[in-house]
Design a protein around this nucleic acid. Structure first.
Length: 325
DNA sequence: TACCGAATAT
DNA sequence: AATATTCGGT
């Protein structure tokens, strides 16, 4: 454009074409950015442009539509431009891009992130929806995990195996981490159980993949659940909670087995039903965990594998064997 | 670069 | 409590 610079063009477009215009330049100088905005640019992207930024530009069109509607009622288009200008300045004052930055392409990253922040001031900034781990989703997750084996999974594998297109690796990673965290908590509880309280049994795999029995107790769970309760609030982190059965525990268990039975059996329903019967959309796990009445279910929920229905027959068999010996 | 787990933020 | 994001590492 021999006789016109970008700004001039911008003005023309603004006057004649009524389009949202995004400027792009290698020049990140505040004054330049401001100038662009003042001349009517709705955004100013620094080159090289990255996909992240590109993905968001549709919002300008969207915003424009909204704005048009708004303008009919009240007049406040100015405010927005000012906001953009401000945040733009913000993103600049710590990070002026000089040629070296752009060439190296390395330091650019921080600055980009700053640029992303800009959107938070944007009333039409769309937040990514939170993933809700519904029972179905979690079951897919569990399935995937089991498919590979406990210790060998990574988020990526799980993600691929789950075959849920909109899910990201980060989503899975986060969930995985959380589930792992929960099962660690569970183990802590089991450990505490050995200090007394009602005991009940649970089958799960230890890290080696062996099936082993573990204990959990009402008392200890309550303590952890409302961690502030003064009696025994301190969480004592103890390793190797992965309890192999010891003989004493076994005795206790067999004694206890007699009476809580009905309650327990009644609770061995599949997680799906139990959670659906409650608050529908809520995350099935954990929520239930707070409910003391549903206590026995917690164990079912937290365990990775869904072998629960077999649980008690196995326990009984083991007990019988034990008595034989 | 793709991926991971831990830590931290929301 | 449950999910997202960031960070430092392989």
């Amino acid at each position: 454009m021999p006789d016109m610079d970008g700004f001039k063009l911008l003005e023309h477009v603004g006057l004649e074409m009524d389009l949202p215009v995004i400027m792009t330049s290698v020049d990140g100088e505040t004054s330049m950015v401001m100038k662009g905005v003042q001349h009517g640019a709705c955004d100013y992207l620094l080159k090289p442009i990255r996909m992240k930024e590109l993905r968001n530009i549709w919002q300008h069109v969207f915003r424009k539509r909204i704005q048009e509607v708004k303008d009919i009622e009240s007049h406040e288009g100015l405010e927005e431009i000012q906001m953009m200008g401000n945040s733009m300045e913000q993103s600049d004052d710590g990070y002026l891009f000089c040629g070296a930055d752009l060439i190296s392409g390395k330091k650019r990253k921080d600055a980009d992130n700053k640029q992303d922040d800009r959107h938070y001031g944007d009333p039409y900034y769309v937040k990514k929806a939170r993933v809700v781990w519904t029972v179905e989703l979690h079951q897919k997750f569990v399935k995937a995990v089991n498919q590979f084996g406990f210790d060998k999974v990574g988020p990526k594998k799980i993600l691929d195996s789950m075959g849920v297109p909109w899910l990201t690796r980060e989503n899975v990673a986060s969930h995985l981490q959380y589930r792992l965290y929960l099962s660690r908590l569970q183990k802590e509880n089991k450990l505490k159980a050995s200090f007394g309280g009602m005991k009940q049994w649970d089958i799960s795999k230890d890290t080696a993949g062996n099936v082993c029995l573990q204990i959990s107790s009402n008392a200890s769970r309550n303590i952890v659940t409302n961690g502030s309760s003064g009696i025994c609030g301190s969480k004592v982190p103890i390793k190797n909670v992965d309890s192999k059965i010891c003989v004493e525990d076994m005795k206790i268990a067999s004694v206890q087995m007699a009476e809580p039975k009905e309650a327990l059996i009644g609770d061995i329903t599949d997680p799906q039903k139990s959670s659906n019967s409650r608050t529908g959309l809520n995350h099935s796990f954990g929520q239930i965990g707070l409910d003391v009445k549903y206590e026995p279910k917690i164990l079912t929920q937290y365990s990775w594998t869904e072998v629960q229905p077999v649980q008690y027959s196995i326990i009984i068999i083991i007990i019988i064997i034990f008595f034989f010996i």
